[in-house]
Design a protein around this nucleic acid. Structure first.
Lengths: 333, 333
DNA sequence: TTGTAAGCGTTATCAT
DNA sequence: ATGATAACGCTTACAA
């Protein structure tokens, strides 16, 4: 196989010359249009010439002409969260299949808006944004898909976060808990807000009120989760069960319990959310609500690449499900 | 601030027209060359026109002209390994600072060679490769930097993996262990091979031989680590301490211990390697050798962007260090 | 069926 | 100091 490592690039002109045809003809043959009417003989000659020379179409040039870049941007709030990695991974998989690249942007150091700006000047085909906060802080543009956050301006790919809250509540109730707490961010993001609301509502419907001092705020990280849970455990009266807004928080809660000598699940049941891989790596393994992160990323990528969406495209919320493992059990009687 | 969201792109021509100068003049003023001799008055007029129109230079067009893309590729063997994420994160940080994008490639589904091929057709400025296996399976090209793997063909950014093996051995010896095992991949990668060698050698120098049935092979994942450790624990005679080739394996080992009722560190001491964030999230927290993953990624990116390297560029191996936490202690006497 | 010509937005090389 | 002009590699009319 003739390759062309770092040598002078082989262009359509070279192929044309070798095949003894004009340059646009080469373009017609090799370009996406299999419908183009060009004589089979010519077609074959061009194919062969390209093969022999090891011709690789230049994506930059093609992009300039077509005013696109065959690339997707992905902006995530925190590369340290495995949930984001899963979203990215799903998007990358689809993108690679479709011949698109994925430009990765971490919103820890630069703002999402800055990243979006930089991406637009590359004529990016589309951007997948996992927002860090609600409110349209993004310069609106037509080619953004939001992950887990509905918006009037952009299409969104959602998971059933209400269902997640409900599932968690029902599971704890079924186990016999009535002293139930919650640890999560004070965020207006759909992903957190609706989950919390559904959780609280479902409990209330069963006659269980969430005590306000058992509702603790923590950023979606293990460290914050640990701190918040520690504070919770210092209360005179403790809950017997806890829902954490995501798995990182839950793992932090697990650490807090270990530090305080609270045994899980017998003293305190803990449920997380997301089902990141990490959930199976801690002891005991984390009971959690699985959110199809990779699938979210994959769908977002498909929407952008296929390019058929409107502002109001809404993917049917993806189902979530309870994964029973080792951190949730019946309360000690 | 006048933005131009998805409207027709503002080009240098528009700016030129508005400023009443020729188009190349605009390029001179706005382009990277601050040395260009252009009258201060003109310069100001151009600046203002660009500002008013909300001009954003088009990276694709610039790329076509300069035969580069202002982007870096990063190819990792497994997005699921937090070590790789750290490498990526370090590279992304530097790249963003320098106005470069990062194209992310996961080598689980497509081969690294395929990804490299696709990247080259984008005139990628450089590619950071964390190899999955040794041996030059990569089509050699001049703009690749390898992570933790020396090569005759490409520059490399290394951590002191020999030091990692030595540090681990010394620590276990100092704690009083003589029955010592090892779990790691049968890989010819520098990153694993040299670490293992240094570990074995250091033990031998202290008169401690690694029993061959205490040397277990496992892919660098938690699951593989768990299986391998399980097998190890089923032996009649067990070691009192274990070095795992990376943290994922070590966490798998931790799980195996939990499953077998082996208490860590009193029955078995475990040391990991990498110091991924996860190491502080398990119980007990993992004693490990810290490898500066983010710094490796950052340096690789700097080498590629600054572009001053030869085939034989070798960054002085970055130091590693022991992080004492909860999984390594003195053997039970 | 195929070749000619124009253009994508930018930078670079010249004259002027 | 500035303005024509060409070029980067490709696609897409349109003409032959």
């Amino acid at each position: 196989v003739p390759r062309n490592p770092s040598g002078p690039a082989v262009t359509v002109h070279d192929v044309a010359r070798r095949a003894g045809v004009s340059q646009p003809t080469v373009s017609l043959v090799l370009g996406g249009h299999p419908t183009a009417r060009v004589a089979p003989a010519t077609r074959e000659r061009v194919r062969k010439a390209a093969e022999e020379l090891g011709y690789r179409p230049n994506v930059v040039a093609r992009g300039l002409q077509q005013r696109r870049s065959f690339a997707l941007g992905v902006i995530v709030p925190d590369l340290g969260n495995p949930f984001s990695i899963d979203v990215i991974s799903g998007a990358e998989r689809v993108a690679a299949q479709e011949g698109h690249a994925v430009l990765l942007c971490d919103a820890r150091e630069r703002t999402a808006a800055d990243h979006l700006d930089a991406l637009q000047s590359r004529w990016i085909d589309g951007v997948i944004v996992e927002p860090a906060a609600s409110g349209n802080t993004l310069p609106l543009s037509h080619n953004v898909v939001l992950i887990n956050e509905p918006s009037a301006d952009s299409p969104a790919v959602l998971a059933d976060m209400e269902g997640a809250g409900r599932l968690a509540a029902r599971h704890l109730l079924r186990l016999g808990h009535t002293a139930i707490g919650f640890v999560g961010p004070a965020s207006d993001l759909f992903r957190y807000r609706d989950m919390e609301r559904a959780f609280v509502r479902t409990l209330k419907e069963a006659g269980v009120d969430l005590r306000s001092d058992w509702l603790r705020r923590a950023a979606p990280s293990a460290q914050a989760g640990e701190r918040a849970t520690r504070a919770l455990l210092e209360l005179r009266e403790r809950p017997t069960a806890l829902l954490c807004a995501n798995d990182l928080i839950a793992i932090g809660a697990l650490k807090a319990c270990a530090a305080k000598g609270v045994s899980v699940p017998s003293d305190l049941s803990i449920i997380g959310c997301d089902d990141i891989e990490l959930a199976r790596l801690v002891q005991p393994e984390l009971t959690t609500i699985a959110v199809p992160a990779r699938e979210l990323g994959a769908r977002a990528a498909r929407i952008l690449i296929r390019g058929q969406y409107t502002k109001h495209t809404r993917v049917q919320p993806l189902p979530v499900h309870l994964v029973e493992r080792g951190t949730a059990g019946a309360p000690r009687s």
